[in-house]
Amino acid sequence: MRIVVGIKWVPNTQAVRFDPKTGTLIRAGVPSIVNPHDFPAIELALRLKDMYGGEVIAVTMAPPSATQGLEHVLGMGVDKGILLTDRKFAGADTLATSYVIAKGIEKISKEIGPVDVAIFGHETIDSSTAHIGAQVASWLGWPYVYYARDAKLVEDGKLRVTRQTEKAVEEYEVNLPAVVATAIKALKPRPVRLSYKLRAKIEKPIIAWNIEDLGLDPRCTGLKGSPTVVANITWMPEVPRKKIVYTPKDPRDAARWILKQLFSDESVAGFLKKALWGEE
């Protein structure tokens, strides 16, 4: 099985601070990390490889500094990293990004071997659109299942994907190749291992492809290929929150107390009544 997993090299948003004097984000010196929501996708990919053999290839569209992120996932057991990198990819919205990634997957299928599954995280912490999985599936014309928590191969070479919604556990069987997006925190990622990290350092299994390698039209990539317009950015000031600590002996008292607190707020009570009992 050949599994592609898409990752994004994102600024560590915990460390991005807001300068109230100038109204801008302070991003200087903020280190980047692999998007935390990509880890369930990486873990799912590695589990599929553990079960059925084959290889896992991590793909990212990013500047060369993302090599560090690819090395991190190689350290978890991913076999190869593909860095889709070109100045002409800069400023991309999700449409232009998913286009480049889809073309990268096509190139992998052609040159390295046919891809069976492409797995993405639910969304990124720096833009939270949750578009990429669906858009890549559209570009490739592959079936798409999201909110996935698990997947396994079943009869006829189909992939059975388990997903959990608020009210049910659902199972979908899709023909391969397919695109899957995992739910947030769906699977706990495995740690980086010494032997895998060492292999990555010595074999350097990271390949960089630029716009010519992919044979793309620059009008479809980067800022030029991005129809999204950022109209305005506003700062929502922090709402000071009240902290109450209540430590009853009996947990049932705690439950009653929480309900009482929640229903004491009119808007919360209204929401809860509607959500729980369908009352208006």
Binding site: Q14, A15, P31, K188
Partner: peptide, 11 residues
Amino acid sequence: LQRTVYDVDED
């Protein structure tokens, strides 16, 4: 502590 950067582990 907000000034300091963390990559918090799940565990």
